[in-house]
Design a protein around this nucleic acid. Structure first.
Lengths: 341, 341
DNA sequence: TTGTAAGCGTTATCAA
DNA sequence: TTGATAACGCTTACAA
């Protein structure tokens, strides 16, 4: 890969390098014929400007760091798809930083980011109380959060988790359910998870039902195998508890864990118990029966975040529009049914 | 983010910038006290060398491009996990290029890669007949292939797809099956897919069974929804054909499509028909019944590829070790059972 | 043991 | 309408 540089082009064209640069970048007037010649020769010898040199000079490489708990998770990789799409369209690159929900690792990586060439960062999910992210924002480093909320003034892309969860309860109530359980992750420092829980609670209350903490299973998320830990926790939690007639879960993977537990126990879904998930992960359609769930527009969230950060970088940011709430909706499949009791 | 540069450090330390550079990089002897002072001050003011400037000078940014058909697919994102792990460990970054199995897009992106700052590329899956990849290799640009084979001299990380598929047939035969169907993607230009098919064929023959093309359903992969297209194709293919007693599939997503088809038809798995998948995707454990499948060590393949490419870049490449075959193994779950007939 | 200065490939200022 | 040249922040050959 012998590479040509701008000097080579200039020499062949018989002009100065600044003319070449200006012609190629359209950054000042260049006589038509000169310009044409420059373009012709550049393409002929296959000249590609060095993004590196350009980056050094412009102090920007059009690259965004994307912090994500786990690339290999459906939810996150769908978001990445959207991020990637918009990045491509705008000639941006992304580098992916996998944090595995590890805050120390996240901090370390943010630190190393500073030596890097990134123009901004997108943080997907993760914990709320991250001073280092606030700091980044204070230092005017462009950041956007996705499915995570740290403070009102940091740009974030979300859905209204509270309303979405409430709509799930409404749906179950409309099917006649009065005894509705909830399975969630622990939510200190996770406002998205907490908002869903509050939506569940409020949904009960607004429908004239009583909220009872005993009906809530809180799972400590110590591993990436969300289905597996859910299954284990269910075994302990429901050991001598009566099962409710319906269960809502904080995410589809958790619902899948509940499926496994219920099937093993000989309960059939939805005859004996109804289930509603959250996120509409691909697997929810594979489950048997297919899971009724609440859609989160993952790809769109990624697109939106990338668009926002590009706007911020290019100083086109509309400061009033910090928090963007996208629409979610209930996807009715076959895991929830009329309550028989 | 006011950033300090090497000059600032030099000034504060009262030494020249070359001393600072050498001290920090350990690239020539620097008096102990001087060195200590440089480190102290650098860390105090939070100096981070600009990766960009370093990259321009060294003509390398320690960045690898990873070409992948679809980040949002289980199989690929698991590979990425491994790639990412080793990259992190070695202070490499990756930029991800999503091709959606589109060869033209791939070519275009390879082209744009040349203007970029990447030190090498990993190509995951995709078609075989890619001259532009061969060309890249001829130009001595470091590349490694994963789950894809273009020619013997291009470094590749694979499993032995032929043997793996054969072992699946052996297993089904050991359960008493004599009528074994196969569902695959079309495999012009996809040697990995073809090898599996050949393994299936050879497995039949070696077990004294006859291979019959009518038992093979070939799916044209025009969409990313592998489950959906499989379901549709099954409906057409088996419309008036007798179902075999067992079916092997080219990947678990295809098996999931077959599940849907069979369940709708009222066939139960494994009582009426046995199924064996391929890849051991996460979803295979979620299926009902859990799918017996052939494991492909996805994360390890990613790790291996990244290690190889780093070796190539650092000229530590052992030229004899171009094609690496990792181990695969049969994961027995509950979708295959003794043949009743 | 350390400093000077060239050079990586651009962009952008100033001058013509 | 265009050209010289400094500068981006670093590494490294050469000199001291």
């Amino acid at each position: 890969m012998a590479r040509y540089n701008i000097k080579d082009v200039a020499k062949v064209c018989g002009v100065s390098i600044s003319t070449v640069s200006h012609a190629l970048n359209d950054s000042r007037y260049v006589k038509k014929e000169t310009k044409e010649k420059i373009f012709a020769i550049a393409s002929e010898i296959g000249y590609k400007p060095s993004a590196l040199a350009k980056g050094l000079r412009r102090k920007s490489l059009n690259t965004i760091a994307v912090f994500i708990p786990n690339i290999a998770s459906q939810f996150f990789s769908q978001i990445l798809l959207g991020v990637n799409k918009i990045a491509n369209k705008n000639d941006f690159h992304i580098i992916i930083v996998n944090t595995f929900y590890n805050s120390e690792e996240e901090s370390r990586l943010i630190e190393s980011l500073k030596s890097q060439y990134v123009d901004g960062a997108i943080f997907v999910s993760g914990l709320d109380n991250r001073d280092c992210i606030k700091e980044l924002h204070k230092e005017n480093f462009p950041i956007v959060l996705v499915a995570r909320k740290i403070s009102e003034d940091i740009p974030s892309v979300l859905i209204d988790n509270f309303e979405a969860a409430k709509s799930g309860v409404d749906y179950l109530v409309s099917l006649g359910h009065k005894d509705i359980g909830y399975v969630t992750f622990e939510f200190e420092n996770r406002s998205t998870v907490k908002d869903r829980f509050e939506g569940y609670k409020q949904g009960l209350v607004q429908n004239g039902l009583e909220f009872s903490p005993e009906k809530v299973l809180k799972i400590k998320q110590y591993s990436m195998d969300e289905m597996g830990i859910t299954y284990e926790c269910c075994k302990k939690f429901y050991v001598e508890k009566k099962l409710p007639t319906a269960i809502m879960t904080v995410t589809d993977n958790v619902a899948a864990g509940v499926y496994n537990f219920l099937k093993e126990k000989g309960c059939s879904i939805p005859e004996d118990i109804s289930l509603v998930g959250f996120d509409n992960l691909l697997l929810s359609a594979f489950l048997d029966p297919p899971l009724t769930t609440i859609e989160q527009p993952k790809e769109k969230m990624g697109e939106c975040a990338m668009e926002m950060i590009i706007n911020i970088i290019k100083n086109r940011h509309d400061i009033k529009n910090n928090i963007v709430n996208l629409d979610s909706k209930l996807i009715v499949r076959k895991s929830a049914f009329k309550c028989k009791k």
